[in-house]
Simulated assay, not measured.
Amino acid sequence: MDSAIGDVQEVTAGECTDCYFLDTGMYETAGYGGVYIVDDDNPAVVETGLGTNHELILEALEELEIAYEDLAAIVVTHIHLDHAGGAGLLAEACPNADVYVPAPGTSLLADPSKLVAGTKAAVGDQWQYYVDPLPIDEDRIVSVEEGDVIDLGTHELRAHHAPGHAFHQLVYEDPANDAVFVGDAAGIWAPGPETITETSPPSDFDLEECLADVEMLQELDPDVLLYTHFGPRAVGDNAEAALEEYATVLTEWVDEVESKREELEGDEAVLEHFAASSEMADTWGAEKASAEAVMNARGVLGYLDADE
Score class of each variant (00 low, 15 high):
residue 303 Y to H: 10
residue 261 R to N: 02
residue 290 S to W: 00
residue 291 A to Y: 03
residue 297 A to E: 03
residue 304 L to E: 10
residue 289 A to G: 12
residue 247 A to P: 12
residue 261 R to D: 01
residue 252 E to C: 10
residue 249 V to I: 14
residue 293 A to K: 02
residue 273 H to K: 00
residue 261 R to L: 02
residue 271 L to E: 09
residue 253 W to C: 02
residue 290 S to I: 01
residue 252 E to A: 15
residue 249 V to K: 10
residue 276 A to C: 06
residue 251 T to E: 11
residue 281 A to F: 03
residue 302 G to N: 14
residue 243 L to T: 09
residue 300 V to P: 01
residue 253 W to S: 04
residue 291 A to V: 04
residue 265 E to G: 10
residue 282 D to E: 15
residue 286 A to R: 08
residue 256 E to D: 12
residue 288 K to E: 03
residue 281 A to C: 09
residue 297 A to V: 04
residue 261 R to M: 02
residue 283 T to Q: 15
residue 265 E to C: 04
residue 284 W to H: 05
residue 304 L to A: 09
residue 304 L to G: 08
residue 248 T to R: 10
residue 286 A to C: 06
residue 247 A to T: 08
residue 280 M to S: 13
residue 258 E to L: 07
residue 247 A to F: 11
residue 257 V to F: 03
residue 263 E to L: 05
residue 278 S to F: 00
residue 267 D to W: 01
residue 282 D to L: 13
residue 306 A to S: 15
residue 271 L to G: 08
residue 277 S to P: 05
residue 293 A to F: 06
residue 270 V to I: 03
residue 292 E to F: 09
residue 283 T to I: 13
residue 298 R to G: 05
residue 259 S to V: 12
residue 300 V to G: 00
residue 285 G to Q: 09
residue 278 S to N: 06
residue 266 G to F: 07
residue 286 A to F: 05
residue 256 E to Y: 15
residue 301 L to A: 07
residue 289 A to H: 07
residue 304 L to T: 07
residue 254 V to T: 05
residue 270 V to E: 00
residue 277 S to G: 06
residue 245 E to N: 14
residue 253 W to D: 00
residue 255 D to A: 13
residue 298 R to K: 15
residue 269 A to S: 14
residue 262 E to R: 11
residue 292 E to Y: 11
residue 300 V to D: 00
residue 267 D to M: 05
residue 266 G to H: 08
residue 292 E to N: 09
residue 283 T to N: 13
residue 246 Y to C: 11
residue 246 Y to E: 10
residue 287 E to S: 09
residue 253 W to L: 05
residue 297 A to S: 14
residue 272 E to L: 06
residue 299 G to W: 01
residue 274 F to Q: 00
residue 273 H to M: 01
residue 261 R to W: 01
residue 285 G to P: 10
residue 251 T to G: 13
residue 282 D to T: 13
residue 277 S to A: 06
residue 264 L to G: 01
residue 279 E to Y: 12
residue 281 A to R: 07
residue 284 W to T: 04
residue 248 T to Q: 09
residue 293 A to S: 11
residue 300 V to L: 04
residue 270 V to F: 01
residue 249 V to L: 11
residue 263 E to I: 02
residue 268 E to H: 13
residue 283 T to L: 11
residue 255 D to F: 15
residue 266 G to T: 12
residue 246 Y to P: 08
